[in-house]
């Protein structure tokens, strides 16, 4: 047969590597998450102004980091998919999107909850919150376009174009929103930066970031695997149809 369809549905090496990594990232997710939450919620000192509410930061800040990193990762793997036509690249961007959207949503919700004690209101049109909100919309658009095509290989290319356009725009959007925010400075907003970060805060923050990272990896592996299996199923159905 001149055309090898299984290339798309049977990335054996990829599956083997992922299968080997999975138990380790799953375990490290559990360990790091417990350690990070313990350090963040019980060990780290409370803020002299914000009290215990500052602890939301340990959930919020790494989630915001993840939101942007995952979008960047999607853009890179989409570019790989477009340029080298690597089948797993498209799938990994697709698999990462809902996880990234969840982290973005988590960052938004915790940001709002943190805003209530700090600013006296759940939502402030703060430059960062606004940027994260826009990022959330970009994730939604990306996920919507995957759903709108019948042919997965077309959907992959369309979604790749969209995510690449988005990633070029993100710095511009970020810049414009920052700029807009300085033009319309709200009356009194406490900055989130606070004083220089002390190691008692930094360490739990980094542990939480690592925990999120391995959580992402484990969810990602599960999702990519199921995507590959779904493709294989599709292919089997197609073959059945053709006989």
């Amino acid at each position: 047969m001149a055309i090898d369809l299984h290339r798309y549905a049977n990335p054996a090496r990829f599956l083997r590597i992922m299968g080997a990594i999975f138990p380790w990232v799953a375990i490290s997710t559990a360990v790091l998450l417990i350690a990070g939450l313990y350090l963040g919620l019980f060990v780290s000192p409370e803020d002299y102004q914000q009290g215990d509410t500052v602890r939301i930061m340990f959930i919020h800040v790494p989630a915001a980091w993840m939101a942007l990193s995952i979008y960047t990762m999607m853009a890179i793997s989409s570019a790989v998919g477009l340029i080298w036509k690597h089948p797993v690249a498209d799938l990994s961007a697709k698999a990462a999107a809902p996880i990234g959207a969840c982290f973005t949503f988590l960052a938004l919700v915790t940001g709002a909850l943190w805003g209530q004690p700090m600013w006296g209101t759940y939502w402030v049109w703060d430059a960062r919150l606004t940027s994260v909100l826009i990022l959330f919309f970009l994730y939604l658009g990306y996920m919507a376009i995957w759903e709108s095509f019948d042919d997965p290989s077309k959907a992959a290319k369309a979604a790749a174009i969209l995510v690449l356009v988005g990633v070029i725009n993100i710095p511009i959007i970020k810049f414009s929103v920052d700029w807009w925010n300085t033009l319309h400075q709200p009356a009194s907003v406490a900055t989130m930066d606070g004083p220089k970060i002390h190691s008692s805060i930094l360490i739990p923050l980094l542990v939480m970031a690592a925990a999120y990272m391995s959580l992402f990896m484990s969810l990602f592996i599960v999702r990519v695997k199921s995507e590959i299996l779904a493709r294989r199923l599709r292919l089997l159905q197609m073959n059945k149809l053709q006989e």
Binding site: I134, F137, L138, G141, A144, I145, L162, V165, G166, N169, I172, I173, F175, S176, V177
Partner: peptide, 8 residues
Amino acid sequence: MILPLYIP
């Protein structure tokens, strides 16, 4: 898809 990109 397009409205977020119109923001700037």
